[in-house]
Design a protein around this nucleic acid. Structure first.
Lengths: 246, 246
DNA sequence: CGTAGACTTGACGGCACTCAAACAAGGTGG
DNA sequence: CCACCTTGTTTGAGTGCCGTCAAGTCTACG
C-alpha cells in the first residue's frame, strides 16, 4: 500500500516542492502519516461546520470547495481546492470547523490523524513550518479572492478565477495554465464568484463571445491567456511559487 | 524596558490566552523575542507588497489594515487589525509579501525578528502551534469576509463588520461588543466593505435612521446588538474564542 | 421515450456606482 | 482673529450591473 500511497501523493509533494525541499525523513513522515485512503461522491460534504475532526483531509484527486451557507440559503465558496491541497489542515490547530467542505466532483482523499500531525510538530520543525506554509497559501488565495469580490466586475472575477486555477493545476502537473480539466457546473461557478447562476451564465457567454473562454465537457481553454490575465488582473505573485528555504 | 514590554503585550497575550494557556517559558520567549518598539503615523505603510521582511510586526495599539490596490486605483482591505494582532506573521513562512499593510491610525508596534521566530519553531513546538493558530484566526476572518462580500447586502456587511470588531476588541479588553473606539473614516469603511465612499455614507446613514448605529467622534455604539447580529448574520463561532489545548 | 439536471433566454426591478457639488470642522498662516 | 485650505461627510441626479422570476432548450440516462 505504501508504494501506491507515495504515488498518490505526487501532486501534494509537487505543491510543496515548488516552494521548498523536502528531506527524506520529512517525506517519509508524510507517507507514514496517512491512515487511510477514502473516496467521496460528488455533492458529499467532506467535513461540516461545527465538526471537530480528529484527522485532516488531503485531496488526492478531484475538486472540492470550502463554503458557508447564509440565512437565505445561498452558498458562498471561500476556496476551490484541487488535487494536492489539504482541505482542512487548519482544523488541527483550530479544532472546530467554522465552515464546511464539499466534494464538487468524485474525490479521492488521504486522511492524516491529528495525532500524526502533532507528532510531526514535535519532532520535525522544518516540516512543521511547511505545513504552516500550506495553510498560509490558502490564506493568500482567500485574500486575493476578497479583493476580487470587492473591486472587480463579474467578468474580471471569472477570468481571475480561471487564471488562478490554471496556474495552480499546472503547478502540480495537472494541466496547463490555459488548458485544463474543470468539471464544475455554472452553479458552482456562481457560488465561487458570489453571483446568481443566471448571471454566471451570462458572464460565461460574454467571455465566449469575446473569444476569451472555451469551456465544454469539463475542459476549459483560455485561447488568449495574456488578455485573460490582464482583464482578470491576475498576477501569480500571491501563489508564492518560489522555491526557497522556509 | 522588559517590564514595559510585557505590559504592552497584554492584548497580545490576551488574544492567545482566550484560546489556550501559555507556559512561563513560552511567555518569556515572546517577551524576549521583541527586538524593538516602534511608532507609525496614520496613513503609513507598515509593509508593502513585494517586501521580504526580516521581522514580523505585532500591533500593540492602533488600527491597521491589510490591503491591495487594483488597476483602477481602488483599494480593498482584506482584514482590519486591532491591538494584539500580528499583522504580518505570515511573512515568516511566506517570505515575500503579496499585499501591503497600512496604519489606519497612529500605531505602536513590537517587532519580532524572523530569526527569533525561527528559534521558537525549533525549540518550542507548542508555542509554534499557537503562532500557527494566530495566522489561522486571520484566515478564518478572511473566509467570513468572503461570504459577506459575496452574499450579504451592503448594510448587512457593515453590521457584520461592526459586530466582529466589537467582539474582537472586547476579547482583548479594549471595549465592549456594543461600544468601542473606532477612529476610522468612511472611506476606510468603504475600502473594507468593497463599496464606494458615497455608498458607504448612505449605508451608515441608513443604519443610523434605523437606530442600529451611533458612530461619532470615533466612538461606535450598537444600541441594539441583538438586532445588529441578526441582520448582519454574525455568529462568533469563526472567532474561535474557546480555551482548549492546541 | 420520459425525466432530471444543466444551461439559456427574456423582462423587469433595485442596489450600488459615477459625477458633481455643497457643507462641516479643524489647522495653518498672514 | 480671520481667511483659507484640507479632509471628511452629505446630498442629488442619472446610469448600469446584476438580481429575481419565469419559461424554454438541451443532453444524458434509465
Amino acid at each position: 500500500m505504501h508504494n501506491r500511497t507515495t504515488e498518490r501523493l505526487d501532486p501534494f509533494f509537487g505543491r510543496i516542492e515548488r516552494r521548498d525541499t523536502l528531506g527524506p525523513a520529512e517525506r517519509q513522515a508524510l507517507v507514514d502519516g496517512v491512515s487511510a485512503i477514502e473516496e467521496a461522491t460528488a455533492g458529499a460534504d467532506l467535513v461540516r461546520e461545527g465538526d471537530r475532526p480528529a484527522r485532516s483531509t488531503l485531496l488526492v484527486s478531484g475538486f472540492a470547495a470550502r463554503y458557508r451557507t447564509v440565512a437565505n440559503g445561498e452558498r458562498q465558496f471561500a476556496t476551490i481546492h484541487v488535487a494536492g491541497d489539504f482541505v482542512d489542515l487548519h482544523s488541527f490547530p483550530l479544532k472546530e470547523m467554522d465552515h464546511s467542505v464539499l466534494a464538487l466532483t468524485p474525490c479521492t482523499l488521504a486522511m492524516y490523524p491529528h495525532e500524526a500531525i502533532k507528532g510531526m510538530t514535535e519532532r520535525l520543525p522544518h516540516l512543521t513550518r511547511l505545513l504552516w506554509l500550506l495553510t498560509l497559501l490558502d490564506s493568500a488565495l482567500q485574500r486575493e479572492w476578497i479583493v476580487c469580490m470587492g473591486r472587480l466586475s463579474a467578468e474580471a472575477r471569472a477570468l481571475h478565477l480561471f487564471c488562478e486555477l490554471g496556474a495552480r493545476l499546472a503547478a502540480v502537473g495537472l494541466g496547463q495554465p490555459d488548458n485544463y480539466h474543470l468539471p464544475l457546473t455554472q452553479q458552482d461557478l456562481a457560488d465561487a464568484l458570489g453571483l446568481s447562476s443566471v448571471h454566471a451564465n451570462r458572464v460565461v457567454q460574454s467571455l465566449r463571445k469575446q473569444g476569451l473562454l472555451i469551456w465544454q465537457a469539463g475542459q476549459l481553454v483560455l485561447p488568449n491567456l495574456q488578455a485573460a490575465r490582464e482583464m482578470g488582473e491576475f498576477d501569480e505573485r500571491y501563489l508564492h511559487l518560489i522555491k526557497e528555504p522556509r
